[in-house]
Design a protein around this nucleic acid. Structure first.
Length: 1007
RNA sequence: GCCGGUGUGAUGGAAUGGCAGACAUACAGGACUUAAAAUCCUGGGGCUGUAAAAAGCCGUGCGGGUUCGAGUCCCGCCACCGGCACCA
């Protein structure tokens, strides 16, 4: 790239940023606010100077970005992808007359700032502020039409005051299963047997939506904190990839499980992508089945109470009860230790007695050894490897309620304590895991479901079939068999129909400093809420931000803060990072309110589509939410949960927060080519390798592959694009075409060194080109590789737009005077002259057609969020307009209205030129470009007098004929048949039928 | 293994069941230039064919099907990407 700019984007962009800021162009107005005389929104909607009421305001459109965590690394090119998409929509909707709310803020609590604080002793606030300032600068440089007056920061006490307040709402609520919603804790009814206040308190505390529980949690030594299930991936922390272990700790929990069903059901009411909804459904993991009670066989020596004698299992296949040949408890199951007989029953095979030969003398010893073995396995080990089944016989038996059969009770870690009842009935014939286990320990396998088709082995058949050898359900197809057996169990009091969810309650406390402190104090072992008047509760500064040596959170170091005069102490845990992002979209509605998290008026106006949009489509909540898939389950599930609680308590008016959600696809690094070499340095074709992939090494990620024949591990070497060429299938080395090269794009990462810094792109091509490129790459939702060459392409397009309007001679003079007086840059812009070819003339038919087909395409594509094709329509227009000797002002004006959402800076500058130098009349006089009304296309302008109609014979293209638009079907047929190119294919054959698609195509079918 | 998504030129990608490859990138040729950059113009899926054309055939991951007509719809596969994964 030469250093000469195609147009002075740097000057223009700075200029318009200042203008927009000064005019507060993108400020949105809450009901009750007075709109100043000068504001363009007031002018557009005739509300200037008025104190507006909800009913005066035009329909709202709330378009939201997932706010970023301001990391020290600065903006990633992935951020502006979503932000540009929402900005284009925001600008388009504004032009369409909507009252647009388009805010931005910072999700600023987080680990990196805290870890930096641990290293340096510097308060994390300082790092955070610095990073926010950098992010703000970078985002502002892109010219997004945010209402910056609503900017929020989750680490600002004015913000987290309300995060803490919402926590108190959760704390002071319980979920009433009868009404299926959260209610104030005061409506809780106590069982009559609870007499003392202490008993009632314990009962109350056990029902709260925010409650304390001692439970095994994921403890991450490296991070010095516990993590939520959702933050643990493959036995490692999602952040940093550190090992985690299970550890019982006292923790704050949020009762999200109470909302499992509603979180699932309401997915059907919102417009999210199917894949995203599926992810949430999977996470919630609803499964219908039955609980079945098995009775432990006790000859009296076990001393079991009647309650302890019952083992309840959960199964989704009650129809296979007759095939249950053993049962399994999780090692952590409560009853495990109670059911152990003193000695092995007669005839217990050695194989059943456990993993440790030394401990086989009694069941208690075997079980103890097995429990120790299972507990020692990290979760990584549990999920990894071939998952060889392990387990041990307890020595006890239970009675299968359907046939009275005595079956052995085992413990095994393939049964999870945390799902269902922590116990299962094992049906090896019809469950893959049970089958594996039964085969390993030589347990009986009994077929009770016949596959519907011949030739399928019934052992290991897990789908629906016909019940066999199953007493009263024999002969029934699986669904009916399930129903009938459950009815029978219910009659007998041996079981019932039930639903289970994979979703667990949300572990809500962290042993960190840089998070919201809990507004909770502890008095005599009981917790109490802080009064609302004491919010926000601000954490004290520390000298040392590490956890204390005995594992207490860092806040425990601040003795003066923790210990209160009356002897009570503060909770020292903090909330997880997700807390602040659970409700930020509500704070934007009324960001400065210090009496409430958000006023009811603002909430109702901006969130409730139905009431204030009048007729038409109802879009409750945030109308459009755009962000990455990385938040598919965590943030989006948590936020929906909080929203539903607030809805139940009457604080918000919609059951769902985000009506329409779009996931932007990841932007990968530029395509990389890898050639593999043998240790001696000679090349190996990628086609001879299997399992090509990345491997982390101390020098960063390396490409590795394994030789298909020898299994030898080979390393890859990066080669540049000019060293390779495309062959029949895939790329090969230019120097040796027998050597295939691996070509793929990778996620951008520091260690790989393929990160594109937005600052550099902005510097070289400007914000408009950057915005345009990110949208032009392809459909928003798709994963796509970055290509800096592609940026140059759209940059050239903007250069063509510029030259369409600006006189070349004045451009040259401008550049010269700019070199001489760079400090006068902005004033020199005035010297740029409009091209002489732009004239106040009536547009001709061709020009109108070009304009109106552009309006049509851009409008339709914006409605469908197909930005890439909208931009190509703009390019088509410019390519056509470049050939016009005279360009009518009106046509060029309308083009700028279409261009503005995509490339606002250049559009504003050229609009101003048309106003000042060509005396252009805007569509709405005195209104800024960003509030000019959108254009309607006129179908009349697109009508062709002569159409080019393709002629097919038997579906194959033979000719294209020109036919007057008003031609009749017969005339069209005649012209087509008369075509010299068509004749040879028709002559001598019988014409069976002629299909004429009006204005589109004609197909002659011959026999 | 289960669920979801995607497969189209050298590349990113376009195509309400109706001219496959819009628009752009890369490439090649030309104009302008002392030269280069920038700009403008032209070309282009493959094969056969021809002096050049014309013309024909084949082409949207693979195999079938529906249809006058399929990248698009249906059935069966394959590959890649993402998510979940001992959840009974």
């Amino acid at each position: 790239m030469g250093n000469r700019k195609l147009y002075p984007f740097d000057i223009i962009e700075k200029k318009w940023h200042k203008v927009w800021e000064k005019r507060q162009s993108f400020r949105a107005w809450n009901p009750g606010e007075q709109i100043p005389e000068w504001h363009p929104f007031g002018k557009r909607h005739k509300l200037s100077g008025k104190i507006v009421d909800q009913k005066d305001l035009p329909p709202k459109f709330y378009v939201l970005d997932m706010f970023p965590y301001p990391s020290g690394a600065g903006l990633h090119v992935g951020h502006p992808e979503g932000y540009t998409a929402t900005d284009i929509i925001a600008r388009y909707k504004r032009a369409r007359g909507f009252h647009v709310l388009h805010p931005m803020g910072w999700d600023a609590f987080g680990l990196p700032a805290e870890q930096y604080a641990i290293k340096t002793g510097q308060h994390p606030k300082i790092t955070t502020e610095k990073n926010i300032a950098n992010f703000r600068r970078q985002i502002k440089a892109l010219g997004f039409s945010y209402d910056w007056s609503r900017e929020i920061d989750t680490t600002d006490p004015k913000y987290y005051k309300w995060t803490q307040w919402i926590f108190l709402q959760l704390y002071n609520s319980w979920f009433n299963p009868e009404t299926n919603k959260a209610e104030p804790i005061s409506t809780l009814k106590y069982p009559p047997e609870l007499k003392t206040e202490q008993e009632r308190r314990a009962y109350r505390d056990s029902k709260r939506l925010a409650y304390v529980a001692e439970m095994p949690v994921w403890w991450c030594e490296e991070l010095g904190t516990v993590l939520a299930n959702e933050e643990v991936i493959d036995g490692k922390s999602e952040v940093g990839g550190y090992p985690v272990v299970r550890k019982p700790m006292r923790q704050w929990m949020l009762r999200i499980t109470a909302y499992a069903e509603r979180l699932l059901q309401d997915l059907d009411t919102i417009e999210w992508s199917e894949s995203l909804k599926e992810m949430q459904r999977n996470w919630i993991g609803r499964s219908e089945g039955a609980e079945v009670i098995f009775e432990v066989v006790d000859d009296g020596s076990l001393n079991l109470s009647p309650e302890e004698r019952k083992i309840t299992v959960f199964t989704t296949r009650p129809d296979t009860l007759f095939g249950a040949t053993y049962m399994v408890l999780a090692p952590e199951h409560k009853l495990v230790d109670k059911i152990l007989p003193r000695s092995w029953p007669a005839g217990t095979p050695e194989l059943w007695k456990g993993i440790d030969p030394a401990s086989r003398s009694t069941p208690a010893q075997a079980v103890k050894a097995y429990k120790a073995f299972a507990a020692s396995k990290s979760d990584l080990e549990r999920t990894e490897l071939a998952r060889e089944k392990t387990g041990v016989f307890t020595g006890s038996f239970a009675i299968n309620p359907v046939n009275g059969e005595k079956i052995p009770i085992w413990i095994a870690d393939y049964v999870l304590a945390t799902y269902g009842t922590g116990a299962i009935m094992a049906v090896p014939a019809h469950d893959t895991r049970d089958l594996e286990f039964a085969r390993k320990f030589n347990l009986p396998i009994r077929v009770v479901v016949q596959p519907p088709k011949e030739g399928i082995d019934p052992v290991g058949f897990v789908d629906d079939g016909i019940s066999v050898n199953s007493g009263l359900i024999t002969g029934l197809p699986t669904p009916q068999a399930k129903q009938k057996i459950v009815e029978w169990l219910e009659q007998q009091g041996k079981g019932r129909k039930t639903v289970n969810y994979k979703l667990r309650d949300w572990l809500f406390s962290r042993q960190r400093y840089w998070g919201e402190p809990f507004p909770i104090i502890w008095k005599n072992g009981n917790h109490e809420p802080l009064p609302e008047s004491e919010l926000p509760l601000i954490p004290p500064p520390l000298d040392d931000y590490k956890p204390t040596p005995n594992g207490e959170p860092p806040l425990a170091r601040a003795k003066d803060w923790v210990n209160l005069p009356d002897g009570s102490t503060r909770e020292t845990n903090t909330m997880p990072q997700w807390a602040g992002s659970c409700w930020y979209y509500l704070r934007y509605l009324d960001a400065k309110n210090d009496r409430r998290f958000c006023s009811p008026e603002a909430e109702q106006y901006w969130m409730d589509g139905e009431k204030y949009q009048g007729k038409g489509k109802v879009c409750p909540g945030v109308d459009l939410y755009v962000g990455g898939t990385e938040h598919a389950v965590l943030h989006l599930l948590y936020a929906r949960f909080w929203h539903k609680v607030l809805y139940d308590l009457g604080y918000v008016s919609t059951p769902e927060p985000f009506y329409k959600l779009v996931n932007q696809g990841l932007i990968l690094g530029e395509t990389e080519y890898t050639v593999f070499t043998f240790p001696d340095g000679s090349y190996c074709s990628a086609s001879e390798l299997r399992d090509i992939g990345e491997e982390a090494t101390p020098h960063g990620p390396m490409m590795v592959g394994y030789h298909k024949k020898t299994g030898e591990k080979l390393y890859g070497k990066k080669v540049s694009e000019d060293e390779v060429e495309k062959s029949a299938d895939g790329f090969v080395l230019k120097t040796d075409k027998s050597i295939k090269v691996d070509a793929r794009s990778f996620k951008m990462s520091k260690s790989r060194g393929n990160v594109i810094n937005p600052d550099n792109i902005l510097e070289e091509y400007g914000a408009d080109a950057f915005r345009l490129y990110e949208m032009f790459m392809g459909p928003l939702e798709m994963v796509k590789p970055w290509s800096t060459r592609g940026v140059e392409g759209v940059y050239r397009f903007l250069g063509r737009v510029w030259r369409l309007f600006i006189d070349e001679k004045s451009q040259v003079e401008f550049e010269q005077s700019l070199t001489a007086n760079p400090e006068k840059a902005e004033r020199l812009l005035k010297n740029l002259k409009l091209s002489d070819s732009i004239k106040e003339v009536e547009p001709n038919a061709e020009q109108l057609k070009a304009l109106h087909s552009c309006i049509k395409k851009v409008t339709e594509d914006l409605e469908g969020m197909r930005f890439n094709t909208a931009i190509s329509a703009l390019m088509v227009f410019v390519n056509q307009a470049t050939t016009w000797e005279v360009k009518p002002v009106s046509v060029m004006r309308d083009f700028l209205i279409l261009l503005q959402p995509f490339a606002p800076h250049i559009a504003e500058e050229l609009w101003e030129k048309l106003l000042v130098q060509a005396g252009m009349k805007p569509v709405l006089e005195g209104v800024d470009l960003c509030y000019q009304p959108w254009l309607e296309y006129n179908p009349q302008m697109l009508v062709e007098e002569v159409l080019e109609i393709p002629v097919q014979v038997n579906g194959r293209l033979r000719d294209v004929v020109r036919i007057p638009a008003e031609a009749t079907q017969q005339e069209i047929e005649q012209v087509a048949l008369a075509s010299q190119k068509v004749k040879p294919f028709v002559e001598g054959k019988q014409i069976k039928k002629i299909i004429v698609v009006p204005k589109k195509l004609i197909n002659i079918v011959v026999g």
